Simulated scan of single mutants.
Amino acid sequence: MKDVILPILDRDFVENLIPQKFPFVMVDKLIDFRENEIVVGLTVPENNIFVKNSIFQESGLIEHMAQSVALYTGYQFYLKQQPAPVGYIGSIKSIEINQLPNLNEAIETTVTVLQEFMGVTLVDISSKLNGIEIAKGQMKTVLAN
């Protein structure tokens, strides 16, 4: 296991932990990691493909949530010194979005793993702005074979 000091604020390092690449990267920091939980961040940049009229759109927020799950898996593999696997959203049980972030606002998302079995991960996800929950949901992700 590698020694890493959290938080990891290096965008390039974080991007290497997930299969997505620019311009489709929706995470830029790994704030905290422990068994069955990760806290991920994104400061919404001007060049983000999901920003319209200075507002981060619903589709971008949902993709950020999914990539937060991918970062959990990718970081687990990094600690085992293995490359990050490709995965897919298997299902979205529910997503509630109460507010959309503006340009340059910092989203903080907590992913809590409810169940992990044979490459399928079921999670609860909560995204916050300034400590206030703006979105929550439940997703199932599947690793590619």
Rank of each mutant, 00 (worst) to 15 (best):
K140P: 06
Q76M: 05
N104C: 10
E105T: 10
A84V: 04
E116L: 12
M118F: 14
G87D: 02
G119I: 01
S126D: 11
L114P: 08
I89H: 12
Y78N: 00
S91G: 14
T112L: 04
I125S: 05
K128V: 03
V69M: 12
S94I: 11
T110C: 11
A106S: 14
Q115K: 15
S127V: 07
Q99T: 11
G131Y: 05
N130V: 04
S126F: 09
P83F: 03
Q82C: 04
G74S: 02
I125K: 05
I134M: 07
Y72P: 00
M65T: 05
L122A: 09
V69W: 03
P85K: 00
P85I: 02
Y72W: 05
M139T: 04
V123R: 04
T73I: 12
A66N: 10
A135K: 02
A66P: 08
P85H: 02
T110Y: 07
V69Y: 05
Y75W: 11
L100F: 11
V123M: 06
S94T: 14
L103M: 14
P85V: 00
P101H: 11
G137A: 13
Q115V: 13
P83N: 04
S127W: 07
Q99S: 14
L129K: 04
F117K: 15
L71R: 01
G74T: 00
I107Y: 08
S68K: 01
K80L: 06
D124N: 15
Q99I: 07
S68M: 04
Q138W: 08
E105M: 13
L71I: 01
G119Y: 02
N98H: 12
E116V: 07
N130W: 07
K128L: 05
K136F: 06
E133S: 06
A66V: 10
P83I: 02
T110L: 07
A66Y: 12
N102W: 11
K93L: 08
E105A: 10
K80E: 09
G90Y: 09
G74R: 00
S126L: 12
S94W: 07
